[in-house]
Design a protein around this nucleic acid. Structure first.
Length: 297
DNA sequence: CCGGACTCCTGGTTGC
DNA sequence: TGCAACCAGGAGTCCG
């Protein structure tokens, strides 16, 4: 499940290949990967063929490559299983490849960018760029404008986040996964940050004290930052690859996928419960629901 | 505003 | 061994 760190690895890997590149051919092998493109695949191909690209941007789990005209961008979401692969122009096309783009980059020469996606929850689309509501001169695809800034964004407003969190009548993991409140966090890093901060996934946000909320956000940044660092070290510039949980970050997980194994902090077994139709991994000893004014749950 | 159900999807795993 | 059922879940939409 690609989350912020994995998407950022893809973004940074794409920089040398696509910045200043001109697209000269596009082939859509599976139209389902264009589900979020408003129009038929011919429209996607026509609008992308011949354009020049600038350096890719990211917000949360969304990635986009603006066109040099600054009016539109190629928007990418990896979904559950999406990968962006850089290949030689005549390399064989891998199984499950949904979209293939050929481009020329002045310094790097010809390159092929393949969008591979097993489960097809990911997508590519062309969308117009609109100004952001909070930073002058900054633009974002219209379809991404509703997504909140991520915690690694220099313009992320901590205080506004805490205020919105406190005002919400919901529980903390639901809030962490709500991309309109804070973006980039998925199931894996939510469980990891909650474990690190000793917060139960079903903790009501209104009963989460400001200091504990502050500590949780710090752990979110710690977890994402660590994953970014590990992704950065294992990244091969010739081959942009994302494998999510089974990929490079799996070995450093404390809670996610470790049900039955001892909690690295207290030694008691990690438990997995189904919450929001996905697995929640936590230590029932370290992570307890607290109600306002006391400890219990 | 909130949450639950539903939808999209298929390789790998489990169970009989 | 064969095959069906099940599982993983990001995000949008609809509905109560």
């Amino acid at each position: 499940m690609p989350e912020l760190p994995e998407v950022e690895v893809v973004r940074s890997g794409l920089i040398p290949a696509v910045t200043g590149a001109t697209v000269w051919r596009v082939e859509v092998l599976d139209e389902r990967s264009l589900r979020r493109h408003p129009g038929p695949s011919e429209d996607f191909v026509d609008r992308l063929t011949g354009v020049s690209l600038v350096a890719p941007s990211r917000r949360g789990k969304y990635l986009w490559v603006p066109f040099a005209d600054a009016e539109e961008a190629l928007v990418v979401h990896l979904g559950m299983s999406g990968q962006v692969l850089l290949r030689d122009v005549d390399a064989p096309v891998a199984k499950l490849t949904r979209i293939v783009m050929w481009m020329d980059q002045p310094a790097h020469g010809p390159v092929r960018v393949d969008f591979v996606d097993q489960r097809i929850f990911g997508s590519m689309a062309i969308d117009r760029l609109v100004p952001t509501s909070d930073v002058a001169g900054e633009r974002i695809p219209a379809s991404v404008a509703h997504i909140a800034r991520d915690p690694m964004d220099p313009h992320f407003d901590d205080r506004q986040f805490f205020d919105r969190l406190a005002r919400r009548d919901t529980t903390i993991k639901r809030a962490l996964l709500d991309q309109t409140l804070v973006s980039g966090i998925g199931n894996i890093y939510a469980d990891e940050a909650l474990w690190a901060a000793r917060v139960h996934y079903d903790q009501p946000t209104r009963a989460l004290s400001r200091p504990r909320a502050r500590a949780l956000l710090a752990e979110v940044r710690e977890v994402l930052g660590k994953a970014l660092a590990e992704g950065g070290t294992s990244f091969d510039a010739q081959y942009v690859n994302v494998n999510g949980a089974s990929g490079y970050f799996a070995h450093s997980l404390n809670a996610y996928g470790r049900q039955g194994e001892p909690c690295p902090r207290c030694g008691r077994p990690i438990v997995r419960e189904v919450f929001m139709n996905r697995g929640s991994h936590f230590c029932p000893t370290c992570q307890r629901v607290r109600v306002a004014g006391g400890a219990r749950g």
